[in-house]
Amino acid sequence: MVKQVPDSQEVVIDPVTMNLNRSLTRNVTNRADENALEAALQIKDRTDAHVTVVSMGPPQAETTMIECLARGADRAILASDRFFGGADTYPTGLTLAATIKAIGKFDIIFAGEETSDSSTGHVGPGVAEFLGIDQITYASKVEYKDGFVTAERELEDGTEVVKVPTPVLVTVLLNSNVPRRQTLRRKIDAIRQGFESWDHDKVGLQPEWVGVRGSPTIVRKMRPIKEKERAAKKVDIAGIPDLVKELYQKGVIKVESD
């Protein structure tokens, strides 16, 4: 499972409207999802696995689908329908789970730990719940052998190694591997092969279950964070007492007595 997101290194916020200026921002594949795809491709390298990439998004996510094929995926399906628009993490998980179900048999579902544009980390685990399968989250290393997935999970106080029978969903840590490059040969083949675009009918969901109508989250209010005023000042040693006084008066520093 992958998602196309605005390039976080290039996010430009319009200081007047406070909106994310998407005309200047380019769209890229969520970086943790690239690690998820790489983890899947490494298993494909060692077995005869078939890798299908699934995403939900607008038609412009085409570039991400082609990119995943160019890195080595066998098939790419984009769930794309105007009814899917405005979804929070609940119908997003539902839509992806339904898409995967419609594809048929699977052994392992890989997802990035979270996306860089909303950072919830909900969607992977949500899909596992909708499909009623086990899940391994925050995996840094994933191996497959004889119907079992062995994964290392990075925890705060150490590394946990778990072994789970398939089918299983694994969310993969950002930077846990080095995604392979797209080559010109693969990219040409990917463009020729093309990806599939599935609407709500093909996915098998009613319009009222998905998108903004299927989303339980209601955003009541959003406000921009007011930036604190900052200033730089150059003083010589003699000026320090005055500076301390000024900072004290402005409440920037305070004196604590014991």
Binding site: E67, Q182, T183, L184, K187, I188, I191
Partner: peptide
């Protein structure tokens, strides 16, 4: 034309 981006010859 087929246009391929992000790849260096």
């Amino acid at each position: 034309a087929m246009v391929v981006t992000g790849v260096t010859v």
